[in-house]
């Protein structure tokens, strides 16, 4: 499971305050703790209500790079911020994210390919989030085609079928799993399949339980990456255990520890 740590995001109070006051220690602490908890990459989002998003993003990147070489997922919906920041990120990076409309996707694919970066592509277009699995597969296939034409390898492409909260969109979790299964079979080698996991439980009770149950279910359908909180130990344990049951690792009595071996420090 490729875990993209979600905690450096202006939507969270601690990160929001740290971004506003340029408190590097809080951000670096969040970066280190997520990596120690087993993150493979770190999402970086300045959040809403920041006067200069570009400036804030560059400060975050520089601040995080001082403590880790982890791939950074530059999370912004604004093209001007993305196109200005990506060339200035040292080391590995991922663009988070593009929509599937051809013109937009081509632009993002080109930026990713030019900078050796990964790209998260959402299966939504000008019409919004699809209300079924078929349209998700269609848009995902479109993203795959555009990526291949633009010189982006499949191991650099992450397709996100867009999960909505289960309380308002009860059929949506099923649609996403169906789309994941089909998109995984669409290309060989397949692209990564990713979800912004915690969205499934927005404003629900039992958020942790819903997140980890859905993680295991989506992994069974071929999900191999997720944007989530790696410091949620039960959630990470669920991901590791689901991987074990898919024969991604060899069992031993201390398999939870074994899966984390070498992540620290």
């Amino acid at each position: 499971m490729y875990v993209i740590g979600e905690r450096i995001n202006g939507m969270f109070t601690d990160a929001k305050e740290a971004i506003r006051q340029k408190d590097a220690k809080v951000i670096q602490d969040l970066a280190k703790r997520q990596m120690e908890a087993g993150a493979s990459a770190l999402d970086v989002n300045v959040g809403p209500a920041v006067p200069d998003a570009k400036d804030a993003m560059l400060w975050l990147v520089e601040t995080i790079r001082a403590v880790t070489d982890a791939p950074l997922a530059i999370d912004t919906a604004k093209w001007d911020v993305m196109s200005a920041v990506i060339p200035k990120v040292p080391g590995e990076k991922i663009l988070n994210s593009t929509k599937a409309d051809p013109e937009t996707a081509q632009q993002y694919v080109a930026l990713a390919a030019q900078n050796g970066a990964g790209l998260i592509g959402l299966t939504l277009d000008a019409d919004g989030v699809p209300g079924n699995a078929e349209k998700r597969v269609e848009l995902g296939a479109q993203l795959i085609t555009i990526a291949l034409e633009g010189g982006l390898e499949m191991d650099k492409l992450f397709i996100d079928p867009v999960i909505l909260p289960v309380n308002v969109a009860p059929k949506n979790p099923g649609h996403c799993m169906e789309a994941i299964s089909q998109l995984r079979a669409f290309a060989d080698p397949p692209p990564h399949l990713v979800l912004g996991l915690s969205n499934v439980s927005q404003l629900c009770n039992n958020r942790g339980l819903i997140n980890r149950t859905y993680l295991a279910m989506a992994m069974a359908h071929g999900l191999d990456a997720a944007i989530l909180d790696p410091m949620d130990t039960e959630l990470m344990n669920t991901g590791i255990t689901a991987g074990l049951l898919q024969e991604k690792m060899i069992y031993c009595d201390s398999y939870l520890e074994a899966a984390r071996y070498g992540k620290k420090g």
Binding site: Y251, C252, S254, A258, Y261
Partner: peptide, 14 residues
């Protein structure tokens, strides 16, 4: 036993 082979290694590493 492959499981124990792995387990002994994590025990010694720990």
């Amino acid at each position: 036993d492959i499981n124990i082979a792995k387990q002994v290694n994590i025990l010694c590493a720990d």
